[in-house]
Computed example of a mutant assay.
Amino acid sequence: MHKGKNRFVAGFLIGPVGLYAVFMIWPYIQTFGYSFTDWRGQSQEMSFVGLDNYVALFGDTVFLQALYNNALILVFLPIATILLALFFAFMVNVGGRGGGIGIQGVRGSSVYKVLYFLPHVLSVVILAILWRAVYRGDVEGLINGSLVKLGISDENNPVEWLNEPNLVLWCVVFVLLWWGVGFYLVLFSAAMQSIPKEIYEAALLDGASRTQSFFKVTLPLLWDTVQTAWVYLAILSMDCFAVISVMTPGNSFGGGPDHESEVMATYLMRNFLSFGKAGYACALGVVILVLTLILSVVTLRISRRERIEY
Results as ranks from 00 to 15, higher is better:
residue 39 W to R: 11
residue 39 W to V: 09
residue 41 G to P: 08
residue 42 Q to C: 08
residue 42 Q to F: 14
residue 43 S to L: 05
residue 44 Q to P: 04
residue 44 Q to K: 13
residue 46 M to S: 07
residue 48 F to H: 03
residue 49 V to Y: 00
residue 50 G to P: 04
residue 50 G to R: 03
residue 50 G to I: 02
residue 51 L to P: 01
residue 51 L to H: 01
residue 51 L to F: 08
residue 52 D to V: 00
residue 52 D to T: 00
residue 55 V to P: 00
residue 56 A to Y: 00
residue 57 L to A: 06
residue 57 L to G: 02
residue 58 F to T: 01
residue 60 D to N: 09
residue 61 T to Q: 14
residue 62 V to I: 11
residue 67 L to Y: 04
residue 71 A to V: 10
residue 71 A to N: 01
residue 71 A to D: 01
residue 71 A to E: 02
residue 75 V to P: 02
residue 76 F to I: 15
residue 80 A to K: 04
residue 82 I to E: 06
residue 84 L to E: 00
residue 84 L to Q: 00
residue 85 A to N: 01
residue 86 L to W: 04
residue 86 L to V: 04
residue 90 F to P: 02
residue 92 V to T: 12
residue 95 G to D: 06
residue 96 G to T: 06
residue 101 I to N: 11
residue 101 I to T: 13
residue 101 I to C: 04
residue 101 I to A: 09
residue 102 G to W: 02
residue 102 G to S: 04
residue 104 Q to R: 15
residue 105 G to Q: 06
residue 107 R to V: 15
residue 107 R to A: 13
residue 108 G to H: 03
residue 110 S to P: 02
residue 112 Y to G: 06
residue 112 Y to E: 07
residue 115 L to W: 10
residue 116 Y to D: 06
residue 117 F to K: 10
residue 119 P to W: 01
residue 122 L to K: 11
residue 126 I to G: 08
residue 127 L to M: 12
residue 129 I to V: 15
residue 129 I to H: 08
residue 132 R to K: 15
residue 133 A to N: 13
residue 134 V to N: 07
residue 134 V to Q: 09
residue 134 V to E: 09
residue 136 R to M: 12
residue 137 G to V: 11
residue 140 E to C: 05
residue 141 G to E: 12
residue 145 G to C: 11
residue 145 G to P: 06
residue 152 I to W: 15
residue 153 S to V: 13
residue 153 S to E: 15
residue 153 S to L: 15
residue 155 E to M: 10
residue 157 N to H: 13
residue 158 P to I: 05
residue 161 W to M: 10
residue 161 W to H: 09
residue 162 L to Y: 10
residue 162 L to K: 07
residue 163 N to W: 15
residue 163 N to P: 11
residue 165 P to I: 08
residue 165 P to E: 06
residue 167 L to T: 10
residue 168 V to G: 02
residue 168 V to A: 05
residue 169 L to W: 05
residue 173 V to H: 03
residue 173 V to D: 05
residue 174 F to I: 05
residue 174 F to V: 05
residue 177 L to T: 03
residue 177 L to P: 03
residue 179 W to P: 01
residue 179 W to N: 09
residue 179 W to Y: 14
residue 179 W to F: 13
residue 181 V to T: 02
residue 181 V to A: 01
